[in-house]
Design a protein around this nucleic acid. Sequence first.
RNA 1: GCGUCCGUAGCUCAAUGGAUAGAGCGAUGGACUUCGAAUCCACAGGUUGGAGGUUCGAAUCCUCUCGGACGCACCA
Length: 558
Amino acid sequence: MEVQMNLTIKQQLGIKIRDAVKQAVVEGIFPDDLLIPEVQVESPKTSDFGDFATNIAFSLTKILKKSPRDIAIIIAKYLEQEKIIKKIEVAGAGFINFWIAEARLYEILGEIEIKQERYGSSNAGQGKKTIVEFLSANPTGPLHVGHGRGAVIGDVIGNILEFCGYDVTREYYINDVGNQMVKLGASLRVRYLELLGESLPLPEEGYQGEYMIDIAKKLYELEKDSCRNKDVMYFKDFAMSEILEDIKQSLLSFGVNFNSWYAESTLYQEEMTKKVLDKLKDMGYTYDANGALWLKTTAFGDDKDRVLIRENQIPTYFTGDIAYHCSKYNRGYEILIDLWGADHHGYINRLKAACLALNYPEESLVILLYQLVSLSRGNQPVSMSTRQGEFVTLSEVIQEVGKDAARFFFCMRKSDAHLDFDLELSKRQSQENPVYYVQYAHARICSIFRKAKESGLKIKSYEEIDLSVLNLSEELILLSKMSTLQDEVSGCARLFEPHRLTIYLMEIVSIFHSYYNHQRIISSESNLTDARLFLINGLRIVLRNTLSLLGISAPEEM
RNA sequence: GCGUCCGUAGCUCAAUGGAUAGAGCGAUGGACUUCGAAUCCACAGGUUGGAGGUUCGAAUCCUCUCGGACGCACCA
């Protein structure tokens, strides 16, 4: 069998199953006009049900008016001779279970040897220009733990899409315009004047956090008392650039890399906002009422119309956001992915409505939500108000539990589920955190190779090794699991669900640990040793590639 | 009041509409003279909040209901 470079085993099976159904049609066993449903090939939950399984018979029962079991038997008959299938079985009410031929499983190792760090990648995205906008936390304070979740999910989605062949930009939208920024400047001004001996009250809803005092001290060190008469805008600019610098630093230590920072103020400088407003007016989707300018978002599925320009003639945040999304389209992006905290969900319809009004294709804008993180320390809830300055910063958490553990933790959960981050628990369990379970497997494999090297063993190439000695069920299960990496990654990309990768890792690593505890990799049988070393080297690459998508290190020693 | 999301083992969470609902933590009992015990093995733990419905089949979809989180601005 030649090394199959393009299709995964799962994909191959899907095609063969479809062909089998077609063949049954050709031979008149199934009716000519049969509409073949999409073939679903799944990894069964237990290996008793084989390497893969399909439920195709169930989806045909209604059309064919036969029992699923009878249909399964018919289809299975056409697949018996397939070379990649070792054993086929009709089970349960009509599942078809497949065991894959060893020779096909061994090819996985050949494919890994060739592809190395690209193993698991694909070209599903066909280079489509994609922009993932995430985090976009207001530059009014340091990032807190809650931000960590959005940062990691966005970052990993970016990695996954890239690995699937999309041309990805990660962008941070900086809200540097508006009332809150004025309050930020005013708050700094008060803190600065305090240092000069003038005591003033903080502004209403000002920023009370201690970091503002630090920033004031820094300003004082640089400028002494020369800013006494500067206006609020001056203080705003200083505070914002300090805070942004701090945010960038936190992200760097968290392994999150944005390659684009887009300031809201740019939209006004480039008159994007005005252009968009004109366009919406020309299209007849706006009207005046109560002294304000409104957009008829209700015509596109929103609950109520929304204000574009307030009575005081200042555009709303919404207007800026429409212009911002136009700018993404204008910059040539075909797929726009926005990742928002779930507290913004009420905003979705409004933005989608605006993009529809401007004739952008509906499916090109994907808005993803992640549920907020509630923080607790033991049973005590911890407040996370930026304004009042009570929060645990992301940097502190990274320092306490480590980048890898924090990233893994945030990725373990489905993003639309609430997440309770218990600081006590995460610290207490830090040594037993699942991330170590995965990393330990990688380190263990590396350790075996150090041992092998000491004994003068080398990794031979795919061509040189007799892999047929790998015939234990654990070895075959491991291989079949390794074969699904690309399927897993593209599933994550399709559904925007990065947490599947952590689950994949846990599953495959648990097979490995068990295997390791029961079998010796390096033994006196040299053929077996060569083959097993080659097997775990392939696994090492699978682990490394998956961890790298998650932005988690794959240590050689721990 | 309206809307969105969530409710699964003691705890934190998995499970494309599929087979006997699974992991980890925690509890209990075992496994290092041998490639790393951050591991493995065994055992226990459930009316998937509740009630109806849809169908070959529901934790998943629909309706109602109970609990929780978050939204419902001419704030950002």
